[in-house]
Simulated assay, not measured.
Amino acid sequence: METGYSIIIADDHPLFRNALHQAVQLAVEGAQLQEVDSIDNLMQLLSDTGEVDLLLLDLKMPGASGFSGLAQLRNQYPELPVVVVSASEEPAVVQQAMRFGALGFIPKSAPMRTLVSALNTILEGDTWFPEGISLENAPEDNIADRLASLTPQQFKVLTMLSEGKLNKQIAYELEVSEATIKAHVTAIFRKLGVKNRTQAVIALSQLEGGEL
């Protein structure tokens, strides 16, 4: 398939980035490929880049744990086509990726031929998920939707809360006033339907569960 597709590979493992790079080149001749190794670098690249045709996203890399990175992306770039590439093959993990609107889920254990086939399928406008997995029998997970409703700055504040940082520390690191952080925290509690920091951190930890 020869196109001028713009594709980003987001993964912090150089060897796997290289494997994905090869798979993309085999699937899509002439693709414009860019690589990043953290969520912060990904967000910076997306803000600097025009239209992106496909993002291949590792769930676990610096700045993200579990689905927190994907939740941020869905909030800030709802139209961005995302394919999750993960070391986990648990049905619940795949179903969560589906909930967040991923176009596909490719296990890192997949052979090169499967990677190429999956990429071709997705770029032709279809979705690609491991066989036998769907959302039909999956339990509802409203916490994922609530977390996805947070703004990027609110998500950053929540992540820092989960690290045990005080409002004063967060305000200093984000270079805003403590009153601004308090307003963010109040908004976070309201959106998540929780009453305190502990409950908010537990909600985030549910999104970060598992070895992804």
Rank of each mutant, 00 (worst) to 15 (best):
Ala144Trp: 01
Leu59Asp: 06
Leu103Ile: 04
Gly4Arg: 11
Ile106Val: 08
Val52His: 12
Met98Pro: 00
Val52Lys: 13
Ile202Val: 07
Arg74Met: 02
Ala148Ile: 04
Glu173Ile: 02
Asp58Asn: 12
Glu35Arg: 14
Ala203Gln: 01
Gly69Val: 01
Pro139Gln: 03
Ala110Tyr: 13
Met61Asp: 07
Thr3Ile: 05
Trp128Thr: 11
Gly132Ala: 02
Ile170Thr: 05
Leu56Cys: 13
Gln153Ala: 04
Phe67Lys: 12
Pro130Ala: 07
Ile106Phe: 01
Ser177Pro: 10
Asp126Arg: 15
Ala97Arg: 01
Ile181Gln: 11
Asn196Ile: 00
Gln206Met: 03
Gln169Arg: 10
Tyr5Val: 14
Thr49Gln: 14
Pro14Phe: 03
Lys165Thr: 02
Ser162Lys: 11
Glu29Cys: 13
Leu57Asp: 02
Arg113Met: 06
Asn18Gln: 10
Asn142Cys: 11
Ala118Pro: 10
Ser65His: 12
Glu79Ala: 09
Arg146Asp: 08
Glu51Cys: 03
Pro111Gln: 06
Ile202Trp: 07
Lys182Ala: 00
Gln95Pro: 01
His184Phe: 00
Gly210Phe: 02
Val28Thr: 13
Gln72Thr: 08
Ser162Phe: 03
Arg99Lys: 01
Arg99Thr: 03
Thr151Trp: 00
Val84His: 11
Gln22Leu: 13
Gly30Lys: 13
His184Ala: 00
Arg74Tyr: 02
Lys60Pro: 10
Leu20Glu: 11
Asp58Cys: 04
Tyr172Pro: 06
Glu2His: 11
Asn196Gly: 05
Lys195Cys: 05
Leu115Arg: 15
Ile9Lys: 15
Val36Ala: 10
Ile9Cys: 14
Glu89Lys: 12
Ala97Asn: 01
Ala23Tyr: 07
Leu42Val: 08
Glu90Asp: 09
Ala183Asn: 00
Ser162His: 12
Val194Gly: 04
Thr180Ser: 14
Gln76Tyr: 01
Tyr5Gln: 14
Ser88Leu: 05
Thr159Lys: 04
Val83Tyr: 06
Ile122Asp: 09
Pro130Gln: 12
Lys168Phe: 04
Pro111Ser: 05
Pro14Val: 05
Pro152Tyr: 01
Ala110Gln: 05
Lys60Glu: 09
Val157Cys: 05
Gln76His: 05
Gly101Pro: 09
Ser177Met: 04
Asp58Phe: 03
Val157Leu: 07
Gly193Ala: 09
Pro130Lys: 12
Glu79Thr: 09
Pro81Thr: 08
Ala27Asn: 08
Thr114Arg: 11
